[in-house]
Design a protein around this nucleic acid. Structure first.
Length: 427
RNA sequence: GGAAGCGUAUCGAAGUGGUCAUAACGGGCUUGAUUGGAAAUCAAGUAGCCUUCACGGGCUCACGAGUUCGAAUCUCGUCGCUUCCGCCA
């Protein structure tokens, strides 16, 4: 959520910033509405002040036995005016809120405008693996090894679901454990949040109202979405709302968390045929990192999260790259996003395994997460940052393909072997 | 799922239509006094939001609606908590 003050004070600047994200808005109406709202508010509050004053005098007059009937008539009139004024203010406020809630975040100044084509590769890690044999895709390899059961996954839940089994399940679990242990070593607090969340979480994270149709809803028998629960599409949605409405001690910042959860997404629409296997599913595993940072130090927090995600990938020895996203390719809530993309040999492209973002105060404003500034004693909004660390659903196939051998076996990356009882080869 | 009770500041809690919202009373915390230092004691201070150039004004007693000249207080709805009962991987 943007600060309305920012808009009323310098609408042209906000307009230009949002345009970088491809969001074209006109603020003239909303500014006029806000002005009118303030005017009515001033009038209504003057009436309230009068009512409060007179109300305080009534018991005194009654005690003295003076007549109060005339006062009552006047007060009734004031009461009606106040009710009308409040209704008007509410109506305007609701309209303003709805408008502002739909605006995306302002991108950081250094971002290029435009979409994907303006993303910039910052760094490439490792090299594209060369195969002296005909390399296979991960679906064929996994099926042959019996470590992913795509067909029976579909039998259970339909298209977009698969079953990890045997060494596949263990490899998946090894990845997650490797991520978890790394975060623990870095001093992050481990969180296992509920997987079903209330509407307010989706709103606070900035995903609703835009994406209400792209998550799975449960327990909505009366059809009221505000009361139903949805399956979290990422642990960020939970982590970023843990302190909603609270005022945090400045000493506690930065707060660093990570959570493992499956992520549930509708991913509606048809995908290109090449997105086979586990590249895009309705349920995938992810370890998510979140930081609550002091606004003056959130850029450092951002760099830390990017560094951590890269370190995890480097540890696995995979070929990948780090990109800085153009303004229009960042998600709506985010001021800045770097993507980590892994090379999928069979597809000949890089696929996202981690997205690290700084929301600045956008999410904190939506869910009212503040801290008390020690120097001024005033409250300020925190900055929230998140990053995958990492999502397995792309790492797994990349690993299978990049580590495949001529005989169809797959070498287990060294860093994962301790988590798999020392196993070095899946065959 | 059923029944009852409850929701007031940092915590416990008083207030049952106006003179009780910076909010009684008590605890905690901060500062000061006292002390060699501490404990104990004493004193002072311990919301957030909106609005205004400012002085000031307004709002908030879980949330929302209603009754009333006036609501923390009465009525209804929603949410949450506690206890008891039922069910249960």
């Amino acid at each position: 959520m943007l600060d309305l003050k920012l808009i009323t004070e310098d609408p042209e600047k906000v307009k230009a910033s949002l345009a970088k994200k491809g969001c074209i808005v006109d603020f003239t109406e909303i500014i006029a509405l806000d002005k009118e709202r303030k005017k009515i508010m001033a009038e209504t509050e003057a009436l309230k002040a009068e009512r409060n004053k007179v109300s305080a005098e009534i018991p005194k007059l009654k005690k003295e036995g003076k007549p109060v009937d005339g006062i009552f008539a006047r007060m009734r009139e004031i009461g009606e005016k106040i009710a009308a004024g409040d209704a008007k203010i509410n109506e305007y406020q609701t309209n303003i809120n709805d408008f502002v809630a739909k605006l995306p975040n302002i991108p950081d100044d250094d971002l290029l405008a435009g979409e994907k084509e303006n993303n910039k590769v910052l760094r490439v890690f490792g090299e594209k693996p060369e195969f002296s044999f005909e390399a296979k895709n991960h679906v064929d390899i996994c099926t042959r090894l019996g470590i992913i059961d795509y067909e029976r996954g579909v039998k259970l839940s339909g298209n977009g679901y698969w079953i990890y089994r045997g060494l596949g399940a263990r490899l998946e679990w090894a990845l997650l454990n490797y991520f978890i242990n790394t975060h623990l070593a870095d001093g992050y607090e481990m969180i296992l949040p509920p997987h079903m969340l209330g509407y307010n979480c989706g709103f606070g994270a900035g995903q609703f109202p835009k994406f209400t149709d792209e998550v799975y809803w449960v327990d909505s028998e009366d059809g009221d979405k505000k009361r139903a629960k949805f399956m979290l599409p990422t642990a960020e949605t939970a982590l970023v709302n843990m302190y909603a409405g609270e005022i945090i001690d400045e000493d506690k910042l930065p707060m660093k968390f990570f959570a493992y959860t499956p992520c549930y997404r509708k991913e509606a629409g048809t995908y290109r045929a090449e997105e086979r296997g586990m590249i895009r599913g309705h349920q995938f595993n992810k370890v998510e990192m979140v930081q609550y940072a002091h606004p003056d130090r959130s850029r450092e927090a951002f760099e830390e999260l990017v560094g951590k995600a890269c370190k995890l990938m480097e540890g696995l020895g995979l070929h990948f790259r780090l990109s800085k996203l153009a303004a229009g390719d960042c998600s709506a809530s985010m001021a800045r996003t770097y993507d980590i993309e892994v090379w999928i040999p069979s597809m000949g492209i890089y696929k996202e395994v981690s997205s690290v973002s700084n929301a600045n105060d956008y999410q904190a404003r939506r869910n009212n997460t503040r801290f008390r500034d020690k120097e001024t004693g005033k409250t300020r909004f925190v900055h929230t940052l998140n990053g995958s660390g990492l999502a397995t659903s792309r790492v797994f196939p990349a690993l299978i393909e990049q580590y495949q051998n001529a005989d169809g076996s797959v070498t287990v990356p060294e860093v994962l072997r301790p988590y798999m009882g020392g196993l070095d080869l899946i065959k």
